[in-house]
Amino acid sequence: MDYKELLKKLSESHGVSGHERGIYDLLRKEFEEISDEVLEDNFGNLIFKKKGTKGKYKVMLAAHLDEIGLMVKDIDEKGFIKFTTVGGVDQRTLPSQEVIVHGKKELLGVIGSKPPHLLSSEDMEKAIKIEDMYVDVGLPKKEVEELVKIGDIITIKRDFRELLNDYVSGKALDDRAGIVVMAVCLDELKKLYHYHDIYAVATLQEEVGVRGATTSAYNVEPDIAIAIDVTHGKARGVSLEIELGKGPAIGKGPNMHPAVYKGLVETAKNYNINYQVEPLPGPSGTDAWAIQVSREGVPTGLVSIPLRYMHTSVETGNMKDIISSGKLLAYYIANLPEELEGHLCY
């Protein structure tokens, strides 16, 4: 499997929270070759099951499929589309972006605002407010209203780019990169012997409240779970310790079970996989938070891919981190003992 090509396809696909179904066919096609069964639960989460040799215990992997985006709020008298946000969109990054309005048919548009020539010196010093932006699709109001309705989704149009030194950039690497990590893991497990059934879940609506993780964990009832997401990577002007190209970040804190954390670290050391430790003293803000407290509680871990410029259209990561994250998970799963009862004690 070409993991970079898969990430490109996923990044350039569109699936704002609550509207992820447009990516289902792509995922099914890519994952049916590396999993034994493809399931869909009532909420819409896609679950890729890979059977173990015993099948007594369940190991759940979770990476969210949804992305942040925009939603049509109004159409003014000139045909300009006013919008609001879905998820944590940074409004400072929106002016001059190319977008796709997903109405009765896809409409290419641009996000416009008042030109700097017409701004006061005071306004020039301020970020443009989202209520002062609009999408211009080049049509009059009547024609726009025939194609676009209030509540329609708008996504950023951005091509995936390969940078130097295995760096890649594009939209929605949060968390389509995590989906690719699951693909690497399942692909690697085809070569390995493992006792336990694997449930790799592409969760929905993480960006608006870890909803897919909540429902899928309740449904799967895993014995162990590991969430896969992105984390803020070191960048210019940002005082962070997690670096791109230095391997996955393994979360450590109350959201993560100590035995799962220890197992991931030991696996990384035993297989010479570079890794970093991410201290998380409170809620992790990922699917791990919902999974941990599902039903009676689930021993949960977190593996994160270092990422720059999160929640922008130029999110930047490193393919080496993505591939090593998938291999780390595969080797961890392959080394889990046949009986897990004593393995997960505090």
Rank of each mutant, 00 (worst) to 15 (best):
E77T: 04
G55L: 07
L61Q: 11
H64N: 04
N45S: 13
D76Q: 00
L46A: 12
G52V: 05
K58Q: 09
M60K: 06
V72I: 11
I68W: 03
L46Y: 15
Y57A: 07
K51Q: 14
N45Q: 10
L70S: 03
F48I: 02
G55Y: 05
I47S: 13
G52Y: 04
K49G: 11
G44D: 12
K51W: 07
I47R: 11
D74W: 06
I47L: 15
L70M: 11
I75N: 00
I75F: 01
D76K: 02
K50I: 01
V72F: 09
M71G: 01
E67T: 05
G69T: 02
G52E: 08
M60N: 01
K73P: 01
E67S: 12
K49N: 13
T53R: 15
L65C: 11
H64T: 08
V72Y: 03
K56C: 01
K50L: 10
I68T: 03
A63V: 00
E77Y: 03
K49D: 12
G52F: 04
K73C: 00
A63C: 05
M71I: 15
E77V: 02
M71P: 04
M60G: 10
G55P: 08
G52Q: 06
K50N: 07
K49F: 08
H64D: 02
F80A: 08
L65V: 01
K78L: 13
V72R: 03
H64L: 07
G55E: 06
H64S: 04
G79F: 13
